[in-house]
């Protein structure tokens, strides 16, 4: 909670993040990279995971020489690898204050065309991965009686979309997971929230924007796509002391999506 008139380094309300430690999954590109840079820019030590793109991951570190950022290759689908990763971060930095579950994949197709692999990859990465990281990190937060978990959901969790049955089901699961975990760990002063982005200008959404751009824009009240930095800003708020009494919420950052 902020003290009135107490000014943060950027001249805004104090967020209480400087000197704390964050883990961000899938931080090498797109929204994840923006989250890494936003939290590190607030004075946090940030460790992010990546899976496939080592070059992009190294760039996030090398292009931010003044920020405290570490990249680690981790497959979130592998629970033992996740446990080992979380323990290694804890051993290195001493606390896990913020966990952002951002890693996600998309395998859009009409239902009859979806292969088993399209289901497995999406569910294992988008929802099982979130279970793995939370299960490993929550005990460290409990012992400190403090922590904030932010899961990246999607507008697809609530609005139907052609070709998105697997993706939207995985994001709907994130919303339900978020509320249940919030109730489960609230008494230990751990907050759990989600951010639900609309269509954001990233590589991941490029195909759908190319395919149905006009239709999408016509359904967005503000008539534009979002920026990764705008998602990062919502994550920053939920990570910070400014949201000390906010838990179990799904915060939409979508420019107002109409059915």
């Amino acid at each position: 909670m902020s003290e009135k008139n107490n000014i943060n380094s950027d001249g805004g309300a104090p967020d209480g993040l400087a000197g704390k430690n964050a883990i961000v999954t899938g931080g090498s590109r797109g929204i994840g990279r923006a989250i890494v840079e936003r939290l590190a820019g607030s004075g946090m030590d940030v460790t992010f995971t990546y899976l496939g793109n080592e070059e992009a991951a190294n760039k996030v570190v090398s292009e931010n020489p003044d920020l405290s950022i570490t990249a680690v290759k981790v497959d979130g689908r592998d629970s033992e690898a996740v446990n080992a990763f979380i323990e290694s971060v804890y051993d290195r930095v001493g606390t896990i204050d913020v966990l952002v579950n951002n890693a996600g994949v998309i395998r859009d197709n009409l239902l009859p065309m979806l292969e088993d692999e399209d289901l497995e990859t999406v569910f294992k990465t988008n929802i099982e991965g979130v279970f793995h990281f939370c299960r490993a990190a929550v005990p460290f937060m409990m012992s400190k009686r403090s922590g904030s978990i932010i899961n990246i959901s999607s507008v697809s969790a609530e609005k139907g979309g052609r070709g998105q049955t697997n993706y939207s089901a995985s994001k709907g699961a994130i919303n339900s997971f978020t509320k249940s975990l919030a109730v489960e760990v609230g008494r230990r002063k751990i907050r759990v929230n989600a951010v639900a982005p609309g269509v954001i200008e990233t590589e991941m959404s490029k195909d759908v924007r190319d395919l149905a751009g006009d239709e999408i824009i016509s359904n967005i009240v503000l008539k534009r796509y979002g920026l990764p930095s705008e998602i990062a800003n919502a994550v920053w708020f939920l990570a910070s002391d400014l949201s000390a009494y906010v838990t179990g919420q799904i915060l939409s950052v979508d420019g107002g999506f109409k059915m």
Binding site: M1, L222, S243, Y245, V253
Partner: peptide
Amino acid sequence: DAIYLLCLPESAMITGPTLFVDGGYAI
């Protein structure tokens, strides 16, 4: 502090939702 978030320039794409500041009561 929640109102502060909604006033920030970076929150320009947040429109429509209700942000509960209720300690999780409603859910």
